[in-house]
Amino acid sequence: MFKQLKARFGSSLSVGIIAIIGIWLIGMVILPQLIMVDYSFRPNLLPSEIGTDKDTYSLNNYETLFGNSIHLSIFAKTIWSSVLVTILTLVVSYPLAFYLAKVATPGQAALCILLLIIPFWINEILRTFSWYIILAYKGPLNALLLALGLIDRPVRFLSGDGGVMVGMVYAYILFMIFPIYNAIESLDSNQVKAARNLGAGWIRTHYRVIIPHAKPGIATGCIMTFMLAAGSYAVPALLGSPGSRWFTQIIYNWFFEGGDWNQGAAYAFLLLLICIGFIALVMRVFKVGLGDIAR
């Protein structure tokens, strides 16, 4: 590989390129993850005890999770809710992505994309905060529902997982729309027309022609959304209540309140494994390779 690089850029530039990539990949991507995993198998010790015979590898930090029913149920809920958020986001995004790619005129599509990008450029915290205002006990949503007579007492939207999920769908929707939009856009419009001409209904056309073509985009969108949802700290921290904690919040507590980094590392690694598992699952279900993702 170096030979190809050298043939194009000369040796000094090639060495520079390799060195910079090496520093990043090894020093920022690989080693930190490895050290984190290593950390998760060690006990939490005082600095003076490190390196003594107490410092042995064990599965203790992982057993904590499976011994703690509250943590375990939060772990399960986080996974389950993230899957739900992913499905919800997909359902909301697909029609829009299809509209942008195949129905809208180029002008309309460009305008819509600009409108979509604007909230995307705005901070996740602010996007979430705006939902905090809307969903508040004395907020506009309750006021509206009361005025319409649909409820007779304000609802505590912010005390369950519902608020968190609404906020997440809102915060991550663009990570779903854009990959699907890109994928559908690359489909030849004539194929859609041909399918329609052959008498296929709209549902059938989507099911048999468009969705198979958009698979890599759907897979990318699902992976991104799930990863962002399961790994989100901001949304549950702002929109959740103490009763609806997210797994990331427990991890945070191990680090900055429990003071047990080893324990936190184990939890973090489990979260990472779940995300990797989800990626593997999606790639299997959609039959796409790693190379197709985020193209």
Partner: peptide
Amino acid sequence: LLTPGVIVGIS
């Protein structure tokens, strides 16, 4: 890009 942000921070 496929790793949750919190894990990047933690590691």
